[in-house]
């Protein structure tokens, strides 16, 4: 638990460092008159600044704590001074004057923050993090440089958040890296609350914050080394700055909206779609003031911030958005990638589109954990039209939301990819719920009853999720035992770590890469490097090219076992292993074996 507290304190210093660097970067733009927006703008700009610095340092082979810590320390010192000036003259909130239900919402948010910190303090076990969100930064840290991760096409996505995870690794350890996405989630919570308080009032702000953050889905997102909390932060800051531009005609706010739209596009291809949607909404909202200079004020910073990631892909693969649109994957990998994307949801017909809202509420498991998304977004966001003053802007915002949803519906129906919409929908839903409550007695009881019931359900589900991490964080369970329970095929990973060293090169079809200590390569997450149907010649040349000394494949993967048969190999071990199909429910897949071979004649 002491370590957890130390991690949390260091996360606080990280936020100060982001604030410090952001203060320096945004100094030419001057201060926003809105102090809270000003602080968040600086934190956001600082985070993007650190990510791009790490990206540049990585390609220059400078990923050493000795290079990172001085920048981190001096930025944190600037951040401390900036905090002093931001807080000067600010009056503390008078909680005694708040109605009890608002205090309950505030306490609920505090509870979720603690729950998410606790979950983040446990060793990293989320499958996508083990495959690349944490595994790739860990590899870069070990090599002291960024290199192309050819076997996983997802590694070509823009990696701003992964760079911040890498910063955490340089600062201390893997858990510290996992705090970066949590910090971004907390920052997006502040942005949602802040923006809603400016658009409406404190009641709306607290309710919007609870709808956005007090849900099991966000606990999972914030504590699993995922990228979406970062996109949510960037989108919410872009939207808040756009709101300021539309209301006050501040050019600096428009520039910042561009910066954060570009930041979203620099976090994942999904963020690019969110940024384009924001651009369209911005153009419609400010159509009467649309001039070429203003279009440039938004789009130039957006392009500048996002560009490095797309240029890197163009240089490495010839396709700036590899492996999409312009291709680049082999045929079977491209087909498997498409199959994986089509696997989620209920279908793509017009009827499916019509049924989408109802399925998201009542049958959302097929959307990949969609059942853990709060229903309050969908229940109350349409009710925003009950508030007369909100109708016109809400119509434009809803048009943007629907545009994004249609894109999501036809691309890949994964619930996670709806997170960029959540900040905006949370504000709409809070305005809608309060509009219903203010329309009459029945509306008040219905709104209060539904919000209370949903938030209470969320607390129960989120507590069940977080409970699995309590023993290991509290020191009542060993790290090794925890990893055995939560990480797929961990017995095999342990065997490999015991018997292989830095001079070996492992080829594996296992996706649990983070905890492998030796150099490794995979066949490709989708068979990107060596397709499953590849024959003897291709297999042998692949193994030769990469200097493979050992192969570890699952017994159930017959194509890979056939390919091992083409090689001069000797079976070293058969390790009984299990896949973890649900960490929370401790569900395991059927018994399998990891077959480990030595390649004869390899050195």
């Amino acid at each position: 638990l002491g370590e957890c507290i130390l991690h949390t304190l260091l996360a606080g210093v990280t936020a100060l460092a982001w604030l410090g660097l952001g203060s320096v970067l945004l100094a030419p733009l001057g201060h926003s008159p809105d102090r809270m927006l000003d602080a968040l703008n600086r934190i956001g700009a600082g985070a993007v600044g650190f990510a791009l610095l790490t990206f540049a340092a990585g390609w220059s082979g400078l990923l050493y704590p000795a290079a990172y810590l001085p920048v981190f320390g001096s930025s944190a010192a600037v951040g401390l001074v900036a905090t002093g000036s931001l807080l000067r003259g600010a009056s503390p909130p008078h909680f005694r004057s708040w109605p009890p239900w608002q205090l309950v919402l505030l306490a609920l948010l505090g509870f979720y923050v603690l729950l998410d910190i606790l979950s983040t303090c446990a060793p990293i076990t989320s499958p996508d993090a083990l495959l690349y969100h944490a595994a790739d930064p860990a590899r870069f840290e070990k090599d002291h440089r960024i290199s192309e991760v050819t076997w996983n096409s997802s590694s070509y996505e823009p990696f701003t958040v992964e760079m911040l995870v890498l910063d955490g690794f340089l600062l201390w350890d893997w858990v510290q890296g996992a705090f970066a996405p949590l910090l971004l989630a907390l920052a997006s919570l502040c942005a949602v609350v802040g923006a809603a308080s400016r658009i409406a009032d404190r009641a709306t702000a607290l309710l919007a914050g609870a709808i956005f953050f007090a849900q099991p889905f966000m606990s999972w997102e914030a504590s699993s080394v995922f990228v979406e909390p970062g996109i949510a932060f960037a989108v919410s800051l872009a939207a808040w700055n756009l709101f300021r531009f539309v209301r006050h005609d501040e050019l600096s706010a428009l520039i910042l909206a561009g910066v954060f739209s570009g930041a979203a596009a620099g976090m994942k291809y999904l963020g690019l779609i969110a940024a384009l949607t924001l651009g369209v909404a911005a153009a419609i909202l400010s159509r009467q003031r649309l001039r070429p200079a203003r279009v440039l004020a938004f789009s130039l910073p957006a392009v500048a911030v996002a560009l490095p990631w797309y240029v890197k892909n163009a240089v490495l693969t010839g396709n700036p958005i590899y492996p999409y649109v312009f291709g680049g994957l082999n045929e079977s990998a491209a087909a498997e990638l498409q199959d994986t994307r089509d696997m989620f949801g209920h279908g793509h017909s017009p009827l499916d589109l019509l049924l989408l809202p109802f399925r998201l509420l009542g049958d959302a498991e097929a959307f990949d954990a969609g059942e853990f998304i709060s229903p309050l977004f969908l229940i109350f966001a349409p009710l925003v039209f009950l508030a007369p003053r909100a109708r016109r802007p809400a119509a434009v915002i809803w048009a943007g939301v629907i545009l994004y949803m249609v894109g999501w519906f036809f691309a890949t129906q994964q619930a996670r990819f709806l997170v960029p919409l959540m900040p905006v929908l949370a504000v709409l839903a809070a305005v809608g719920a309060l509009a219903l409550a203010r329309r009459g007695e029945v509306g008040r009881w219905v709104a209060a009853g539904v919000v209370t019931a949903v938030l209470a359900t969320g607390v129960a589900v989120s507590s069940v999720y977080a409970a699995q991490f309590v023993p290991v964080v509290a020191g009542a369970e060993s790290r090794r035992n925890f990893l055995h329970e939560k990480v797929s095929y961990y017995d095999g990973v342990e065997w490999l770590n015991r018997h292989l060293g830095d001079d070996d090169m492992l080829l594996t079809d296992n996706w649990t890469l983070l905890y492998l200590d030796m150099p490794y390569i995979t066949f490709g997450t989708m068979g990107d490097l060596l397709p499953p149907e590849a024959g003897p010649e291709q297999t042998r040349s692949f193994v030769r090219k990469h200097g493979v000394t050992h192969v570890a494949v699952l017994k159930g993967h017959e194509n890979r076992r056939r390919q091992v048969g083409y090689l001069p190999s000797r079976l070293l071990a058969r390790i009984p292993v299990r896949a973890v199909t649900s960490r929370t429910l401790a569900e395991l897949g059927p018994p399998d074996e990891m077959l480990i071979y030595a390649i004869e004649g390899s050195t």
Binding site: L378, L383, F385, G443
Partner: peptide, 30 residues
């Protein structure tokens, strides 16, 4: 008045759908 009634109806339907989903979730866990 009509939009108010429609809003209450939508909240009732949507909440019932979510309740149905949560019942299934609890049953699956059980």
């Amino acid at each position: 008045v009509r939009s108010y009634a429609l809003a209450v109806l939508w909240v009732a339907i949507a909440t019932a759908l979510y309740g149905w989903q949560m019942l299934h979730l609890v049953r699956d866990i059980g």
